[in-house]
Design a protein around this nucleic acid. Structure first.
Length: 272
DNA sequence: CTGGGCTCCTGTCAGC
DNA sequence: TGCTGACAGGAGCCCA
């Protein structure tokens, strides 16, 4: 579910509210992707610092007690609640604080909550270590993109999704960015020309920025920590539109499979 | 190093 | 109505 815009929208929706609150309790539901990695008791009383985002991960610092790395996987969402409803079947992590309850709901359980002593401590250092640049980092541009793609034979779509060059674009936004840049998703990454790399870098930033403004994409169940849905799905040009007319040229949008993921594109607007 | 495929898990929907 | 298979917003891991 959540790509960079959804994760960032989520972060913004509760970071201020939880800042400075002491941890008063912790409840674990069914196992998530990895074990928490710490005795929950040791986190009691710690103050929550400023929630940060790196790629699609959130880092929740606990002053004097390390911090928690959160990932929403495919189906995760966070809620920040004034009350304490009985946990549902898919509520697998509760962090009770003086300011409210932070609850992770994740039906598929590909998400994770992992403790580490710090951002540079294991296992967090390894998880974050291989990540590419943030899309809004000034260092991320066509030059960087072009250099990192050179010699690679994978399809450009898969190179974007891999997250080791630039983070944040998942299946929806990778498709949308390639449409915006007019690039065929099957193009071998190393064959992207420098001018087109410029366009693609701009498009990645542009699409993620638009999605952020729209509050993210709510295909089915994405909500921010206060239950607000996103609306970027209304602006999608290709994602989920197989067989429908391209909004730019009218050609039928195609769906193909790359690396076991659906790719949507306009065969006429997007060139090799 | 690179690329490709598999895997984790549950829910939903289309088709028969 | 019930069953089956395809598919779903991620990404770590293993193997060639």
């Amino acid at each position: 579910m959540p790509e960079l815009p959804e994760v960032e929208v989520t972060r913004r929706s509760f970071a201020d509210a939880i800042l400075g609150a002491r941890v008063t309790g912790l409840r674990l539901g069914k196992p998530l992707r990895w074990p928490l990695g710490v005795d929950p008791e040791t986190l009691l009383g710690a103050r929550v610092g400023t929630v940060q985002r790196r790629g699609k991960y959130l880092w929740l610092p606990l002053e004097g007690a390390g911090g928690l790395l959160l990932h929403l996987g495919m189906s995760g969402s966070l809620a920040f609640l004034d009350t304490t409803p009985a946990p549902g079947a898919h509520d697998h992590f509760d962090l009770h604080t003086e300011h409210g309850l932070l609850r992770l709901t994740d039906p598929r359980r590909f998400g994770a909550v992992v403790w580490a002593a710090g951002l540079d401590a294991e296992p967090v250092a390894t998880l974050l270590g291989g990540l590419g640049l943030e899309p809004f980092d000034a260092r991320f541009d066509g030059l960087h993109l072009h250099a990192r793609l050179s010699g690679r034979r994978v399809a450009i779509k898969q190179a974007l999704l891999a997250g080791d060059i630039v983070v944040g674009a998942g299946n929806i936004y990778a498709c949308e960015a390639l449409f915006m840049a007019g690039i065929d998703p099957r193009l071998p990454a190393g064959k992207l020309s420098r001018p087109r790399a410029d366009r693609l870098a701009m498009a990645v930033r542009g699409v993620l920025g638009q999605a952020l403004e729209a509050g993210g994409t709510t295909l089915r169940d994405f909500r921010d920590a206060h239950g607000v849905a996103g609306s970027f799905q209304m602006q999608a040009q290709v994602y989920g539109r197989e067989g429908e007319a391209c909004r730019r040229c009218g050609t039928a949008i195609r769906r193909i499979v790359q690396g076991q993921r659906s790719t949507f594109f306009c065969p006429s607007c997007q060139k090799r």
